[in-house]
């Protein structure tokens, strides 16, 4: 699944609407164009559908709030994916904190939930792979998901995550090694 993150036509249409100060139309077009891609980006980070829906809502809420001030310094899709990533991390950190307060481990909860999740359609092998990914540190997990599942280019990832291509390659290398080790032992 190779997703073209940047649709030039859409970008220019939205930019035009923003220049015309037609924020509502620009926002509606952003929602229509990016809701699915953002959803899947978020879903692979938070795993549970209900959580992904919640984070997606929060993401669009932030977009709505700041769209008027969007200067166009970065591409819209970069900006959107960055917001979605940050919202996902914020969400996970809140959940982790809540879990810690109850002396639980959030990753264990996710792992258990995944097995019985009606919206997880994977076989046993895919479940092991997801558990391996879940075992990665947060940022490596995001990098792994974007590269392994979505096959996004390092250059695009670097723009979204605001890190260098070199550090992304290093992160992905470590992530793949850890996943490989995990699946061998499970």
């Amino acid at each position: 699944m190779n997703q073209n993150m940047n649709s030039t036509n859409t970008e220019s249409q939205i930019s035009h609407l923003l220049k015309e100060k037609d924020i509502t139309s620009a926002f509606n077009q952003i929602v229509e164009e990016y809701k699915e891609r953002l959803y899947w980006h978020i879903r692979k980070i938070v795993l549970i559908h209900e959580d992904a829906d919640d984070v997606l809502q929060n993401t669009f809420l932030k977009v709505w709030r700041y769209l008027e001030n969007f200067k166009g310094d970065s591409k819209i899709y970069t900006w959107l994916f960055r917001i979605a990533t940050n919202e996902s991390i914020t969400f996970i950190n809140k959940k982790k904190k809540k879990a810690e307060d109850s002396f639980e481990i959030y990753e264990d909860y996710l792992s258990n939930t995944l097995q019985s999740d009606e919206y997880f359609n994977g076989d046993k092998a895919q479940l092991i792979l997801q558990k391996a990914v879940l075992n990665l540190p947060e940022k490596q997990r995001i990098v792994f998901n974007m590269k392994y599942f979505d096959e996004i280019k390092y250059k695009d990832m670097a723009e979204v995550l605001n890190v260098t291509v070199g550090s992304l390659k290093a992160s992905y290398h470590h992530a793949v090694k850890k996943v490989e080790k995990f699946v061998k032992t499970h």
Partner: peptide, 25 residues
């Protein structure tokens, strides 16, 4: 490292695939 990563990645994809196992309502 890059070559090793690529080989490991290919092996993982062969065995576990990289299809999206998640669905939505």
């Amino acid at each position: 490292d890059q070559i090793q990563t690529r080989i490991s990645e290919e092996k993982l994809k062969e065995e576990y695939g990289n299809e999206n196992p998640f669905i939505v309502p």
